[in-house]
Design a protein around this nucleic acid. Structure first.
Lengths: 336, 336
DNA sequence: AAGCTTCGTGTAATCCTTTTCAGTGGTTTC
DNA sequence: GAAACCACTGAAAAGGATTACACGAAGCTT
């Protein structure tokens, strides 16, 4: 039989209420507080969080639903969210949805059962669209993926602008036939596609976009197909880290040189980005800021449930590396 | 006021006990079961997990304590553990200790308060040594890091053998002055160091080991120092992924070519390992097996609390890539 | 000195389930 | 035909904390 608050109270010669107050920073005289603390230390008492949550009607828990913790952006995000949560005495429940609406629904039910204080969620496109309909008994902050300002707060990268920046950059180094490779599950990809379209149009470039499953294998397959054609593009923009790796692999297999034959660029800066090939040009997302902002929005929402929804857009940073270096010797040496 | 089991019972015209039994697969007649299920659907009732946990004295929660979720091995491990846990109806509490004994102690207290069913833990060296003393009110399975077979179950890579394999491989391609770079916080590094020592000794090679903080920056700094000397080594073994990246960076800065000037190898195979430089030679850990085995050990332990502790060692797989290609050889096909 | 706060404390109700226990009605067994 | 058994069901206790409420003592104000 584990020891409970009653045992502590008895040992300290006080009531259970007083012991509880010692934990909750209620009004307790220094004298009693010390007696209680001594009793706690002596007994090794640990409050039962389930009981506490039940009675106080505060789960002190937030949910974090992402596609896959192994995708670097979500890894970093989860780290930030958990740090912030623990700092304010909250727990995090992490869920991997694998881009499946079914799993999302299942986990949403779990979140309800856990009576989470709030949810930070990178929903699939399908769920995002359906999100306006069913309302959840807790506030939701969308991250990474968000539609127009609707019922829910959101914090996302300025994906449109970021992709414009990438296209412009490739154009600057002399590329004119730039293909875009986008995932087919997230709204992020949609936004990036729009940025791609608007940039290529305004710069008078050709535009050709492909939508595939957001993983390296699918990307490699698609790009291999594209580059097996006669009229090879001279630039590729991939809308995620994994897909960018797929592009790199495709180039290796096709024996195309980067950046000479084709310049490539994508999203998310990782520790190894500078070490892959000649270094990968990417848009770095301020993932720390995104995570902290999501928590801030969530806490604000808890304070003011009726306040209008906010959509926060943060800008990415272009990091130029070898994969988009200008082809040197344009003047000196003729390049075939 | 949220709806509770009482509302469902009333609506279905049954007692709360019957509703509870519908969830718990207790004996309920088909007729009542259907009535209850209809009432649940109609009301949107969600059982309160805190109340359930409190009454049933089952938290259905396991803890997972690792140094940092962002380190790829732990990322993958957490994914496996969470998948397994959810599959058996359990929740996971993830904690990042940042290799700090203080945070470990803090999170251990949290685990007690959560009344976790068990803990999967990659402890720091300090905590590992102290682990025999204080006993915890829940079973612990050590993962990735484990001492001699002691009080706790553990599942680790055969670090000794893996490092021997790496040293042998480097010797095979003609390297004789191989330095080892190890982290200074985990027992893993200790085991790998011992393997390194034993392999270099038995092969009659020189041996020189360095211990640094297990991150890329510290590794880069140390290796830069080592390779600025007159007698440069011709091989480096790094005991973690991050440190291996540090080594690669150091080589770039020193303008040393891999593998011509120096062969390098390390641990953990990632999606990008084959794309960094000429491809990185690594020992791949069977992280899926490690995670599943940890869960198995934990569940076994719950069934048989008194059974003797088990230590499971899994072997790694050497993946040879360009970073350790034979200098004389012309062919550098990656071997998988 | 009476009346009003304020502070600290204890008693008991409460949070929402699960689970024990005691039926109930019907069937089988002897 | 009584006894034993079975499959369900409901009433009520229990799980371990928080907290509303009441109360006594002390410190003020008039």
């Amino acid at each position: 039989m584990a020891i409970g608050i009653k045992d502590v109270a008895q040992r300290a010669g006080v009531s259970v209420a007083t012991v509880s107050r010692v934990f909750g920073n209620g009004p307790v005289s220094p004298e009693l507080r010390e007696r209680v603390e001594k009793a706690i230390a002596a007994t090794g008492y640990r409050p039962n969080l389930s009981a506490r949550r039940l009675r106080s009607q505060h789960s002190q828990t937030i949910g974090l639903m992402v596609a896959d913790i192994r995708s670097p952006f979500f890894t970093a995000l989860s780290r930030v969210v958990e740090d912030e949560a623990y700092r304010s005495g909250m727990r995090v429940i992490l869920c991997n949805t694998d881009e499946s609406a079914e799993r999302e629904a299942m986990y949403l039910r779990l979140m309800e059962e856990e009576r989470v204080t709030g949810l930070i969620w990178a929903p699939t496109r399908g769920s995002l669209e359906r999100l306006a309909d069913d309302d959840l008994p807790f506030p939701v902050v969308l991250v990474d993926r968000g539609g127009p300002v609707g019922r829910h707060d959101s914090v996302v990268l300025d994906n449109h602008q970021a992709t414009v920046t990438l296209v412009r950059h490739l154009q600057t180094i002399g590329r004119s036939h730039i293909v875009g490779l986008f995932g087919n599950t997230s709204s992020t990809a949609v936004d990036r596609h729009l940025g791609y379209l608007s940039a290529t149009a305004s710069l008078g470039l050709s535009s050709e976009a492909f939508f595939v499953a957001p993983n390296a294998e699918a990307a490699e397959r698609e790009i291999t197909k594209v580059f097996s054609r006669a009229d090879r593009p001279d630039g590729v923009i991939a809308s995620s880290n994994a897909m960018l790796l797929g592009v790199v692999k495709a180039m290796r297999r096709l024996d195309l040189r980067t950046p000479d034959d084709v310049a490539i660029a994508g999203f998310d800066n990782e520790t190894w980005s500078e070490l892959v090939g000649p270094g990968l040009t990417v848009i770095e997302q301020p993932v720390g800021d995104i995570g902290r902002m999501a928590m801030t929005l969530l806490f604000d929402r808890l304070k003011a449930p009726k306040a209008p929804a906010r959509k926060v857009m943060l800008s990415g940073r272009l990091i130029v590396r070898g994969s988009t270096a200008p082809v040197t010797g344009l003047v000196d040496e003729p390049v075939e």
